[in-house]
Design a protein around this nucleic acid. Sequence first.
DNA 1: ACGGTAGGTATACGGCGTACACTTGTCAAG
DNA 2: CTTGACAAGTGTACGCCGTATACCTACCGT
Lengths: 243, 243
Amino acid sequence: MAQQIDSGRRVRLNRDRVLQAAVALADETGIESLSMRRLAQELGVVPMALYKHVANKEELLDGMVEAIVGEIDPPLPGADWQGAVRQRVLSARLVLLRHPWARQVLESRTNKTPAVLGYMDSFIGMFLAGGFSIDLTHHVMHALGSRMWGFTQELFQDPAVPAADAPEALPPEAQAAMLQQLAQRYPNITQVAMAAAHEDSSVVGPGCDDQFEFEFALDLLLDGFERLRRRNWSSARAKAGRG
Amino acid sequence: MAQQIDSGRRVRLNRDRVLQAAVALADETGIESLSMRRLAQELGVVPMALYKHVANKEELLDGMVEAIVGEIDPPLPGADWQGAVRQRVLSARLVLLRHPWARQVLESRTNKTPAVLGYMDSFIGMFLAGGFSIDLTHHVMHALGSRMWGFTQELFQDPAVPAADAPEALPPEAQAAMLQQLAQRYPNITQVAMAAAHEDSSVVGPGCDDQFEFEFALDLLLDGFERLRRRNWSSARAKAGRG
DNA sequence: ACGGTAGGTATACGGCGTACACTTGTCAAG
DNA sequence: CTTGACAAGTGTACGCCGTATACCTACCGT
């Protein structure tokens, strides 16, 4: 492990090496035994050295998520929406299987980092390209929910998210510029979020009607169950039909 | 807070008071700031006193889950399966909203405690009573998955679960007795688990074919999405139609 | 009245994240 | 080649955490 010397010369640390090592360590020994001290030891370095490359443990975890999300296959452009979404979700599932700790970490994280936003944006894009209305896309994304890792739960709660919780607010023109940049980089998210913000003034106000989203997904499943029941579905027949 | 004296006499601690206080503290200050020390302080007691009533923090969390699950409404017997399941899930959701920490804790827990098993058993019972085959019930439970809190994910992995990870195994006849007792107390779980154990010898062996379960639920949702898309579903119309 | 025991206490240990002040290595400009 | 500034790495310390162990004490059945 801990390579100390490389022909007499120390290997310089950097953020990527730290994240890489953290992912590897979590893969091997489980997330609960990933500590800053243990990670430093693995890198042949004193604990505080890590803090030159990550602000704190929270940011380390965010970085690990970024790394993981980067492993998900990009959508293949040719397919119909259902095939594209299917392939994407199954690819995400494979990644989660490779990194058993990822599910737990993803669900504990509330910050949306760029890779996560990018993933969601391209995900939304698949539905829009498949002929879904913005409205339906919105609810469908919620319904996919934790099957795409749960972070969709509070997806559109706070539109101006990433690292915008600074102690003192930025000047308004800077905020506007940032929002515009966000809109440029994640056009699909922006589209859906803005539509949602306008739409449901009937309810409490801005933000999603969580109760509605929940019942939407629930009823979708229950209706599906009922259909299967009526046609006497069985897993044996399903498996025989496919494989 | 911390009531010290009750007309000159200390209020005796007990497991229920500990769990109750833990739930309240987590509700008020968040799960991340629930520590044994803080909890003890809240109860006007030295930290180690808690260990006379709870083995360790893990068991404390298990106990909190038990308490929470007990808050879910029992199924009302008259309804059709869909209404019954719907009401049950929505009741569970209300409980989770009351205790925001519960989702995270539930998903981190792998032990199945009695209340959780009881909840699942009665849940399965609703499907069986509604005319679902054991086979379909099994897969449907998986599909409901994290919408019923994720613990269905590894539901049937290890049939002989609760506290059976003692350092030295019990004598076989004791194990058999325990299994029989389990079967008596949770007949529906047992039924489904046994059917599943027999069925899928086609795959790796015992246990569930996770990939199949995942795709089953995914395709159920995707098919539902497609149906909505084709009929130009919109949330506005859906809301108008209902409310 | 008393002795056993369940409930509560005191102390201590090793691990954690990280603040703060420091030394060391590296590399560009003089 | 020297130098000096800035980035990278170090050492020490603090206040948390969970909990092992040994002890004390109030209560209850006898």
